[in-house]
């Protein structure tokens, strides 16, 4: 079953045609990896799904991005609600300059949950799901800035899942992290896919094979090939895909 279906998506920034006729289906409760060289439109694509590109004035799009069959760009769509359902984890860990607790509670507070008991319960639940609770349990009031890069990124994941999203977009979540932290995040992704639909952008091909079930290969704003990850890496159908994954360019 598909959580997201994208039909003939074209994205422009001013005169710059960034995504060209993108068609892709993202299956529910699975991990889909997006690979491709820098500047090929992977990040732009996932930012189209939760409408983060709306922040850029020159952004313009054609085509449909269907989440559970509803176009996220239809004029009745509430962007606040959409971003609650489609959470995002960024490349550089970006916790707020607040306490660990407040970082996770932030999303809940802005969506109107202010009762201390339910806040505490949901913060703990989110931190547990993000495999961070044991490390921060006794220092929830400390600044999130004191955490290591890997812990900060898991905090950002906790912050995202506290909102109870359906989809989590991850934009190269491990590129700023050391190998041990990366392993922890990857383990976490494996755990989270039971409950969430995950789209992960990655430059690391091994990571794509480790965490994802499906992979799409982007090149110059087009999807060259989408398939089961195993198929893509063992038996790519397109010459360009083969060149990229064997390291001949990009």
């Amino acid at each position: 079953m598909n959580k997201i279906e994208v039909e003939d998506l074209n994205v422009y920034f001013g005169d710059n045609h960034v995504l060209k006729d993108v068609n892709i289906e993202i299956p529910k409760n699975n991990v889909t990896a997006l690979i491709g060289p820098s500047g090929c439109g992977k990040s732009t694509f996932i930012r189209t799904v939760n409408r983060m590109n709306d922040l850029i004035p020159s952004f313009r799009h054609e085509g449909n991005v269907l989440l559970d069959g509803v176009d996220v760009y239809n004029h009745k769509m509430d962007v606040v609600d959409l971003r609650k359902k489609v959470g995002m984890v960024f490349q550089k860990p970006n916790p707020f300059p607040k306490s660990i607790f407040e970082n996770v509670a932030y999303g809940l507070r802005i969506h109107g949950i202010n009762d201390n008991d339910s806040l505490s319960a949901r913060v703990e639940e989110a931190l547990r799901s993000a495999a961070l609770w044991d490390e921060v349990e006794d220092k929830l009031e400390n600044s999130a800035m004191g955490l290591s890069g890997g812990q900060q990124q898991r905090l950002c994941i906790a912050r995202t899942i506290a909102n109870n999203p359906k989809v989590i977009l991850m934009d190269e979540p491990c590129s700023a992290l050391d190998p041990i932290s990366t392993t922890k995040i990857e383990d976490l992704i494996h755990k989270l896919k039971r409950d969430y639909t995950i789209i992960i952008v990655t430059h690391n091909m091994q990571q794509a094979t480790r965490v994802s079930k499906y992979t799409s290969f982007f090149l110059n704003g087009e999807i060259i090939e989408s398939n089961l990850t195993d198929k893509i890496f063992i038996d790519p159908q397109n010459k360009k895909t083969e060149d990229y994954i064997t390291g001949r360019f990009g």
Partner: peptide, 8 residues
């Protein structure tokens, strides 16, 4: 970005 991403 983080704040907007959470639906603020």
């Amino acid at each position: 970005e983080a704040s907007f991403g959470l639906g603020a």
